[in-house]
Design a protein around this nucleic acid. Structure first.
Lengths: 274, 274
DNA sequence: AGCTCTTATGAATCATTGA
DNA sequence: GTCAATGATTCATAAGAGC
């Protein structure tokens, strides 16, 4: 087993005990949403969601480095025509555990799930909650700067929206490829609203994240050699991206099919290098 | 005094008593944010914000029609490097008052306030919380359908063969499919993410809302002749838009300069009509 | 009319100073 | 100490001027 990655089959509430204190620089995960994914995770009832998550977040708080960051992708579902409050309750409960609720990023999903209801529009955003262990944490803002100004204006006028979407979904780092072509142009910092299309139908597994999303946070909060953890690693997107970016990747999942698939991927990687 | 509008100078916690039960179809307002606007509103401390707002929301619940809607524009500030939780607390407290938290729209402000800090990016979004009195409320979705962007029309008109091939080969992204669905369609429903720039320098008065924002919700949740209330009417944007859209407009504010200015505006309107 | 360029200015945030 | 006020930082817009 390489130091570069660690794949664990099991319940993260239990398996996280394997990890040392303060050993992880970035935790980024999209836990099963309430009442979703019944087949794989048993379906946590909205009213029990906080109670279910707190033992996990307690372990995450232990393994996270004091200068590290925890990014939690979550969105409340509508229950009885209302937004359920478990996410609000979770934020408050995690603060009592010792977490700092530093920021709430908005993930604007440009191609949100289709549908029509008489009392609400399509939900096209999710929360990306940033939690920290201390007020002093590592943040490499310059790594995620985006071009703007004349470049963006000219481009926006001359190119259609389709082109932009296509570019962003093709290049994992957003405008990364294009950025390199425009070195020397004006670069500006992004805001706390992130525009990314979702990826669908990725080899039969539902890809929770588009690859750009973990890539963006990995660039922002870690350096090469740091450790990135996803306790609900699912199809493995976070691990693959972290590994490609020369970070150590740890993934945990309770579904053996997911773990098998991820192990296969990393075996292939090692064989290539050999 | 016309039935078409009502302008009240005073503290809305008190003055709302003038309004009848169930008489308002839409409440849309942007109350003073915690610790902001000290000169005009006194600056409510974050820790006391919920306590300050609850008597007002209780009166709002009384005057709102059972089929009406309350849109609350609010955003928590950063305190001690953390996001404060008073908005989360407010949502929970209002639910205990009897409000239903139906939806949370995101207002993405394209021109957010400048600034740079080592631990956070610029804040470019605000919450637009939708509360209702009952699960059955009026919503006229077709009134806010948006035209398919020019980019899509232009793209569809001269869709080159290469484009078609490229799009179809990217079916896994879900995007190619969408394009074919848009053929022949002029209007689509919006989502719960609203993109609008703030208006600047409006004749000395800072316009809290861009005019489009109240206009959008007035179209969505009311019909001509319905009553629209803004208990923190400020420079009057909500009232002016509502009046232009043939809705009855009620505005309350504790700042006499604002009220004078709004009365002047409506006097001019009536003189023109005479 | 349609462009480009310039300028003013925001519901912000944190570090520093002062009571 | 704790708390409250001031200063430095900074960019996407609209509006206006000039070709």
């Amino acid at each position: 087993m390489s130091d570069e990655f660690l794949i664990i089959l099991g319940d993260c509430a239990i398996e996280l005990a394997q990890l040392h204190n303060d050993s992880v620089q970035l935790i980024i995960t999209s836990p099963p949403y309430a009442d979703q994914r019944k087949k794989t995770y048993g379906g946590i009832h909205p009213d029990e969601y906080v109670e279910w998550f707190l033992p996990i977040s307690r372990e995450l708080l232990r393994v996270l480095n004091p200068r590290g960051t925890f990014i939690l992708n979550i969105k409340e579902k509508a229950v009885n025509g209302e937004r359920h409050t478990y996410v609000l309750d979770l934020i408050k409960a995690m603060r009592e555990q010792g977490w700092l609720w530093t920021e709430e990023f908005i993930w604007h999903k440009k191609n949100s799930y289709p549908g029509k209801w008489p009392n609400r529009f399509r939900d096209s955003w999710e929360r990306l909650l940033q939690f920290n262990k201390s007020k002093k944490f590592d943040m490499y803002q310059e790594e995620v700067m985006v071009p703007v100004g004349d470049w963006a204006k000219a481009r926006l006028k001359n190119l259609s929206e389709t082109d932009k979407i296509r570019d962003e979904s093709r290049v994992e780092s957003g405008f990364g490829k294009n950025i390199s072509n425009w070195v020397g142009r004006e670069m500006v910092y992004p805001t706390n609203v992130i525009h990314m299309a979702t990826e669908t139908g990725n080899q039969g597994h539902s890809a929770v994240f588009p690859r750009q999303l973990p890539a963006w946070f990995i660039k922002l909060f870690t350096q090469p050699g740091d450790t990135v953890l996803d306790p609900f690693v699912g199809s493995g997107t976070t691990m693959f991206v972290a590994h490609e970016m020369k970070r150590c990747a740890i993934g945990i999942d309770i579904v053996s099919e997911y773990i098998d698939s991820i192990e296969e991927y990393f075996n292939m990687c090692e064989r290539k290098q050999a």
